[in-house]
Design a binder for these strands. Structure first.
Lengths: 94, 94
DNA sequence: TAGATAATTAGATATTTTTCTAAATATTGC
DNA sequence: GCAATATTTAGAAAAATATCTAATTATCTA
């Protein structure tokens, strides 16, 4: 996992909101965009950041591009955090 | 928990390294600084960010200021992340 | 109280990030 | 192939962040 990329991606509220929207299942870029008062170009930038962090996956479906969550990385991240603080029941113990 | 503050705090590699150093137990600002090639002023800025996010606690001991981890917030954050991705065994379920 | 040490605050600059507009690419359907 | 729609890429401007030097605050000790 690219720790730095993941943390940077999560640091922006718009990007976290995008992830939130994807909890209900895959959506096209346009569908995600409906919820935000931001240009498609800016949104696209956020997608790129999320994708680079491997937090979302994409798939072209005709003229649409469908985004979906990559849950695996969230697990990794949560584990990493739990691992970052001492004492208390260590999880994986890499 | 101030979600935004916490994520922003975690986004910087120097700050994550500071947290890492504190895993072994409380340290003074100076002791923490030894590990970084950065001025005390810059370090102090990072401390302020971590403190504002409630990730660390401070206590003055004589002329020193002692920093320690606030594990509680890490737990909150990890929980929040686990909660952010769908399906799979929900944790707290607020 | 004066000098030394630890740390922070103030103010400036450099870098990074977010956002925008405009232009480009991909795909559909006539 | 052409117009329309969906999305991304390029390039620039605006906003936020990290870093520095210099000055300030707090504490200790001689």
């Amino acid at each position: 996992m690219k720790q730095q990329e993941v943390f940077k991606a999560m640091a922006d509220p718009t990007r976290r909101a995008i992830l939130k929207r994807l909890q209900g299942g895959p959506l096209t870029a346009g569908e995600i965009g409906e919820a935000f008062d931001i240009t498609p170009a800016s949104l696209s930038h956020h997608f790129a950041v999320l994708k680079h962090a491997d937090l979302v996956r994409t798939e072209r479906r005709g003229q649409y591009i469908v985004y979906s969550l990559n849950s695996t990385v969230f697990e990794d991240l949560a584990r990493m955090l739990l691992d970052l603080f001492p004492t208390k029941g260590k999880v994986g113990g890499k």
